[in-house]
Design a protein around this nucleic acid. Structure first.
Length: 821
RNA sequence: GCCCAAGUGGUGGAAUAGGUAGACACAAGGGACUUAAAAUCCCUUGGGCUUUUUGUCCGUGCCGGUUCAAGUCCGGCCUUGGGCACCA
C-alpha cells in the first residue's frame, strides 16, 4: 500500500516556498567556476502567460538548472518588456493609467512564473518602463546623436492607421502592421532614425562569428534582410553632359541598354514641364508606395522625351518614368536591358521599345525577333564592342575594370537594409530626449538633465491621442544652448530600442551607471532562447545596438548572443494557439489539474525544442502518468534505499542489466541535453529505464546487492529528473534521505565500462536482405562473426550452392554475404 | 519568381557516423485486479500473403542514380510550411 500518493499541489507549493526562503536561485559568483549566461526573451506583460511562454521558459529553465548542476556560475534573470501599445489601449478603454496596468500585470505574471517553478534570480529583475532603465535609452540616444548615428530626416514612412503611429521597415509584414495586421500606408514625415546602415557590413560579417551557435535559417534571414549586392555604378550622361549614374549588378549587359527608367519621386524630374508626363508623375506620387508596388500592379511608364547617352557605345536611349523603380535603392534610376531581363522585356514589348541581344546562347543561337521572353542564362557576349566573344561572367569583371580605367564608372556595393525609424507617435514609451529651439534648431537634452521623465499622471478620457501632446508642462521647456523657449519632442522611442540592450543590464541591474564591470564578466549571453518571429526584428536590432555599445566602449563584446535557440510554436488543431482562433489552452487550468511538473514535462516531451509542438490533452495525461510511475516505484522500494554503493562483486542477470541500463541512460540523457538539445529523447530514455526497472523482480531488489543497485539508480535518476520536473524531484530527493537542495547537486556521472552490453544482436544478411538475427557476446571478433554467419542454418539455405563474391562484416552489427549463381 | 526548412504507422515523434525503420508516448484491442467503475499492472499493435508458428513480400512524398547496404548520399520532380519579393 502506498504510503503517500503523488500530491503535486502540496509538493509544488512546498518546494516553491523552500526555494524562495532559501534564496536558492540567487546568482552565484564563485571565482573558481566558469560563468554561463542563459537568457530567454523577456515577455511583454500582457497580464497572462500563454503556452508559448510556458514552452519558452521551460526550455530555458531546463538549461539553466542543468548548467547549475554542471558546476557553472549561472546567470538566469527575468524582466519585462513593459512599454507598448496594449497598455495604452487598455488605458483608453478603461481609463487605467498604463503605469498601473503594467505594474499589476507584472505582479500577476510573476506569480504565474513562480507557480511554474522557474529558477529566476528576481533580484536582477529589469523592467523597461522604469526611469532607471529607460534613462539609459536616452543617454545612448544622446551619444548616438553626437556621433551622427541618431538623426532626423524627412522621409516617406510606414504609417499604421489603427495604431496611429509610424513603423520601421522590419515591422511591416506583407504590407501589414506586425502588431495589429492593419494595412500600412505611406506618409511623408520628419522622423528620428538610427543609422543601422552604417553597420550593415559589420552586421553581415558578424554573422560569421556566431555561425556555429545560431540556426541556419536565422542567419539566412538576416543576411537576406541586409541584402548586400555587388555591382557597378555606371555614369550614363544626359545630352547636356550632366551625369546620370545608375547601379547595376549586370554590367555585362550594358551594350544591350535600350531605355532607362527613373523613380517618379526622383528630384531630377522637377525640371519636366510636359503636362502629360507631369500628370503621370503626380498620379503615381498620389498612390501609396504599397499600392504602387503591389504585386498585381502592372508595370507602367511614360517617355519623358529626355535622351540618355550610354558611355560604352554612345547609344542615345529614351528615359522613362516607371511606377516600379525604387527611389531608395541605388540611385533611384535604372538601365533596362530587355533582351536579358524578363521585367525589362515585358515593359519594352508593352511600349514598343527595341530589344538588343548582347549575350547569346552558345548551344542554340538566339533569333532576337523570335524571342518570347528575355534570355537570362549565361552565355557569350555579342554586340558588345571589345567584349565580344567573352563569357558573360568574365565580362562582368572586365567591364567594371574598364569603367574604372576610363572613369565612366566604379565598383559599388549596395545594401537593401534601411535606417531604423525609431519615432513613435504614442505615449507609453521612452521619451526621445530632443528639444526644438527656434534659434538653435534640433538639440538633445544634456546628460545632466536626463532622464526626461514620461509623465504618469495622465488622463486618456476622450482621446486616443498621446496625452503628452497637450501637456504644456511637458512640452514647454528651455533650449539647453541658448536658454530660450523651446519645445520638447513628444514622440517616444520604438519599444524595440528598450529590448536592444536589456540583456546587458541584467549583469548589474542596480548599478547607478548604465553598466559596471559585471557586464564584462557575464556578457555575452551564452545561450539565448526565443521565438523565430524575432529573426530580423529584435535579433538584428540587438546585434546593432551591441555593436554601437561596443564602439562607445561600454561593453567588450561585439555580438550579444553566442548561441541562439529558436523554439517552435505551440499548435492546436493545426494552427498556432491564438485568441482569435479560439484554440488557446490556459496554462493555469492545466496546472490546476496536473501540476506544473506535468506541464513542463509535456512541453519538453512532445517535440524537440526547435520544432512546433502539437498540443494534446492525452499527451499531458501520459506525462502525468509517467511521474506517477516513478513516484510509485520509489514509494515501493524506499525501504531498501541505502547509502552503500554497489561493489564490484557479481550481480544476478536482472540487476546487472538494470545497472547497465542506468549507466547507459545517464550517458544518453547527458548527451541529449548538452549536445543534441533533444529533450524529448532524453525523457524517452528515462522512461525506458523505468520500464526496465518495472521488469525486475522485487526479490532481486531486496537482496543486499539489489538494495545498492536500486539506491544507485534513484541517486542518479532523481537528479536527472530535477531539470525536467524539479518540484517532485526535490521531494524524491528528500524521500531518499538526502539533505540540501537538489538544485545545487552535481549532475550524475556514469561509468563508461558499465554502459556496454554483454550480449548484442547480430544481423546476418544475404545480398543485403536480413535472413537471420542472433544473440552473440559483445566481445565477438569479426572473424567469429563471419564464422557464425556461415554456420547459421538460415543463412546456409540462402548461400548453398552459390558463390560468395563479397563478404562485409561490420563489427558488432552485421554480416552481409553477396552471392552469385 | 528567388532563398530556406520539412514530408516516416491511426497520432506526436525516434533512428546521433550509410549498417536491424517505427525507440518512447498517445490512441486502439485484449487480459489481471475489482461486486462494479476509476486508477494500476501485464500483453498485442506498419501493411499484405500464409490456417498458425515458421516464413515471405511490400513499406520512410514521387522518379531515377551511387553502394554489398539508402529514411540517411547524389540528380530530377511533387506537396506543405516559412522568409524575401519589382533591390535593377
Amino acid at each position: 500500500m502506498a504510503e503517500r500518493d503523488y500530491n503535486f499541489k502540496e509538493i509544488e507549493k512546498k518546494w516553491q516556498e523552500k526555494w524562495e526562503k532559501g534564496n536558492v536561485f540567487k546568482t552565484p559568483r564563485d571565482p573558481g567556476k566558469k560563468k554561463y549566461y542563459l537568457l530567454e526573451m523577456f515577455p511583454y506583460p500582457s497580464g497572462r502567460l500563454h503556452m508559448g511562454h510556458v514552452r519558452n521558459y521551460t526550455i530555458g529553465d531546463l538549461m539553466a538548472r542543468f548548467m547549475v548542476m554542471k558546476g557553472y556560475n549561472v546567470l538566469h534573470p527575468m524582466g519585462w518588456d513593459a512599454f507598448g501599445l496594449p497598455a495604452e489601449n487598455a488605458a483608453i478603454q478603461n481609463n487605467i493609467p498604463p503605469f498601473k496596468w503594467t505594474g499589476d500585470n507584472i505582479e500577476h505574471m510573476k506569480t504565474q512564473f513562480d507557480r511554474l517553478g522557474f529558477s529566476y534570480d528576481w533580484d536582477r529583475e529589469v523592467a523597461t518602463y522604469k526611469p532607471d532603465y529607460y534613462r539609459w535609452n536616452q543617454w545612448v540616444f544622446v551619444k548616438m546623436f553626437e556621433k551622427g548615428l541618431a538623426y532626423r530626416k524627412n522621409a516617406p514612412v510606414n504609417w499604421c492607421p489603427r495604431c496611429s503611429t509610424v513603423l520601421a521597415n522590419e515591422q511591416v509584414e506583407n504590407g501589414k502592421c506586425w502588431r495589429c495586421e492593419s494595412d500600412v500606408t505611406q506618409k511623408e514625415l520628419n522622423q528620428w532614425f538610427f543609422k543601422i546602415t552604417a553597420y550593415a557590413e559589420d552586421l553581415l560579417k558578424g554573422l560569421e562569428s556566431i555561425r556555429e551557435g545560431w540556426p541556419e535559417r536565422v542567419l539566412v534571414m538576416q543576411k537576406n534582410w541586409i541584402g548586400k549586392s555587388h555591382g557597378t555604378l555606371i555614369n550614363f550622361k544626359l545630352e547636356t553632359g550632366e551625369d546620370f549614374p545608375i547601379f547595376t549588378t549586370r554590367p555585362d549587359t550594358v551594350y544591350g541598354v535600350t531605355y532607362m527608367v527613373i523613380a517618379p519621386e526622383h528630384p531630377f524630374l522637377d525640371r519636366i514641364s510636359d503636362p502629360k508626363v507631369r500628370a503621370f508623375i503626380d498620379c503615381l506620387k498620389s498612390q501609396s508606395l504599397i499600392d504602387r508596388l503591389s504585386e498585381e500592379k502592372e508595370k507602367e511608364g511614360i517617355d519623358t522625351g529626355i535622351k540618355v547617352v550610354n558611355p560604352f557605345n554612345g547609344d542615345r536611349v529614351p528615359l522613362y518614368v516607371g511606377n516600379f523603380v525604387l527611389m531608395e535603392y541605388g540611385t533611384g534610376m535604372i538601365m533596362s536591358v530587355p533582351a536579358h531581363d524578363s521585367r525589362d522585356f515585358a515593359f519594352a514589348k508593352k511600349y514598343g521599345i527595341p530589344v538588343k541581344l548582347v549575350i547569346d546562347n552558345p548551344d542554340a543561337p538566339i533569333d532576337v525577333d523570335a524571342m518570347a521572353d528575355a534570355y537570362v542564362e549565361d552565355g557569350i557576349n555579342v554586340n558588345s564592342g571589345p567584349f565580344n566573344g567573352l563569357r558573360n561572367r568574365e565580362t562582368i569583371e572586365k567591364i567594371a575594370d574598364y569603367a574604372e580605367e576610363k572613369g565612366i564608372g566604379r565598383r559599388e556595393v549596395n545594401y537593401r537594409i534601411k535606417d531604423w525609424l525609431i519615432s513613435r507617435q504614442r505615449y507609453w514609451g521612452c521619451p526621445i530626449p530632443a528639444v526644438y529651439c527656434d534659434n538653435c534648431g534640433i538639440r538633445v537634452v544634456p546628460e545632466k538633465d536626463l532622464p526626461v521623465l514620461l509623465p504618469t499622471d495622465v488622463d486618456f478620457r476622450g482621446s486616443s491621442k498621446s496625452p503628452m501632446l497637450s501637456m504644456d508642462s511637458f512640452v514647454n521647456t528651455i533650449c539647453p544652448d541658448c536658454g530660450g523657449k523651446a519645445k520638447r519632442e513628444t514622440d517616444t522611442m520604438d519599444t524595440f530600442v528598450d529590448s536592444s540592450w536589456y540583456f546587458a543590464k541584467y549583469a548589474s541591474p542596480k548599478s547607478a551607471a548604465m553598466f559596471d564591470e559585471e557586464v564584462d564578466y557575464w556578457m555575452p549571453v551564452d545561450q539565448y532562447i526565443g521565438g523565430i518571429e524575432h529573426a530580423v526584428l529584435h535579433l538584428l536590432y540587438a546585434r546593432f545596438f551591441t555593436m554601437v555599445l561596443n564602439d562607445l566602449g561600454l561593453v567588450k563584446c561585439r555580438e550579444p548572443f553566442t548561441r541562439l535557440l529558436t523554439q517552435g510554436m505551440v499548435i492546436k488543431d493545426g494552427a498556432k494557439m491564438s485568441k482569435s482562433k479560439g484554440n488557446v489552452v490556459d496554462p493555469d487550468v492545466i496546472m490546476d489539474r496536473y501540476g506544473a511538473d506535468t506541464v513542463r514535462l509535456f512541453m519538453l516531451f512532445a517535440s524537440p525544442p526547435d520544432k512546433d509542438l502539437e498540443w494534446s490533452d492525452k499527451g499531458v495525461e501520459g506525462c502525468n502518468r509517467f511521474i506517477g510511475r516513478i513516484w510509485r516505484v520509489l514509494d515501493k522500494y524506499r525501504e531498501y534505499i541505502t547509502e552503500e554503493m554497489p561493489d564490484d562483486g557479481p550481480l544476478s542477470g536482472g540487476l546487472k542489466a538494470l545497472r547497465s541500463e542506468l549507466h547507459r541512460t545517464v550517458k544518453a540523457v547527458t548527451k541529449d541535453i548538452s549536445e543534441r538539445l533533444q529533450y524529448n529523447t532524453a525523457i524517452a530514455k528515462m522512461m525506458e529505464l523505468v520500464n526496465v526497472l518495472y521488469q525486475v523482480d522485487e526479490k532481486e531488489i531486496s537482496s543486499p546487492q539489489g538494495r545498492r543497485i536500486i539506491s544507485e539508480l534513484f541517486f542518479k535518476l532523481v537528479p536527472m529528473l530535477n531539470v525536467f520536473i524539479p518540484h517532485v524531484a526535490e521531494e524524491m530527493w528528500e524521500i531518499l534521505g538526502r539533505t540540501g537542495y537538489l538544485y545545487n547537486q552535481p549532475w550524475p556521472d556514469f561509468i563508461e565500462a558499465l554502459t556496454a552490453r554483454d550480449e548484442i544482436e547480430l544481423v546476418f544478411q544475404v545480398n543485403g536482405k536480413i535472413r537471420s538475427r542472433v544473440q552473440a557476446p559483445a566481445s565477438i571478433s569479426k572473424e567469429e562473426m563471419e564464422k557464425m554467419a556461415l554456420d547459421d542454418a538460415r543463412v546456409k539455405g540462402f548461400i548453398e550452392g552459390k558463390e560468395i563474391v563479397k563478404r562485409i562484416v561490420v563489427s558488432g552489427k552485421l554480416v552481409n554475404f553477396v552471392v552469385k549463381g
